[in-house]
Design a protein around this nucleic acid. Structure first.
Length: 180
DNA sequence: CCCTGATTCGC
DNA sequence: GCGAATCAGG
């Protein structure tokens, strides 16, 4: 694939939108996230507006000329960050919690977490995560189980058991009620 | 492990 | 210029 003007423009836009490199790569197609990141750097777009904590410029010392080749794991690159933001972190003192932590337990959670689902949002859902729905898809608190599933499989082992329950097994209610 | 961006360097 | 391999981090 080549970086046509159109693709570059879309890349710029999505990058400005805050999408991750992998997301952009998926949208563009034909490129990996590495390609996207590489291009971003070549375009000089790197370093998205990340609330620079203090006035400390994120200076990066030029790496000393090294004899180590790419991929030499035992050749430790010297740490080159001039600042790690330590001062800025200290400046942000944690305010005392004014409100007691509350065990917010909604009825839905009572029911749905009985099997310790990950409860991921659709954005967090990945290929190898269980897509068992939790709750009302029209509500904002709708989640998916998110448990580990074999890549390509819709559900985790637990929910697959429910989903693919053979019809002739249902006769005498052998399995626990489908509560979740 | 899943992911993120950053960097190097052979091509 | 491109991007895989790698690093460093969340």
């Amino acid at each position: 694939m080549q970086w046509t003007d159109e693709r570059v423009e879309l890349l710029k836009k999505r990058w400005a939108d805050g999408l991750s490199a992998s997301q952009i790569a998926a949208e563009l197609g034909g490129v990996t996230r590495n390609a996207v990141i590489g291009k971003v750097h070549r375009l000089g777009l790197s370093g998205r507006v990340k609330a620079q904590p203090s006035g400390v410029a994120r200076l990066r010392v030029k790496p000393a000329p090294t004899t180590a080749r790419r991929g030499a794991p035992s050749a430790p690159r010297e740490h080159v960050y001039a600042s790690h933001g330590g001062a800025a972190l200290q400046a942000v003192a944690q305010p005392q919690a004014r409100v007691m932590p509350q065990p917010r337990v909604t009825p839905i959670e009572l029911v749905e977490t009985q099997f310790a689902c990950e409860r991921v949002t659709i954005m967090e859902l990945r290929e190898n995560m269980c897509r068992w729905p939790l709750g009302d898809p029209s509500q904002t608190d709708f989640r998916f189980c998110g448990g580990r599933s074999s890549p390509g499989d819709a559900y985790c082992s637990h929910h697959a058991q429910i989903a693919y329950q053979p019809a002739n097994d249902r006769r005498r209610d052998r399995r626990p009620a489908i509560a979740h």
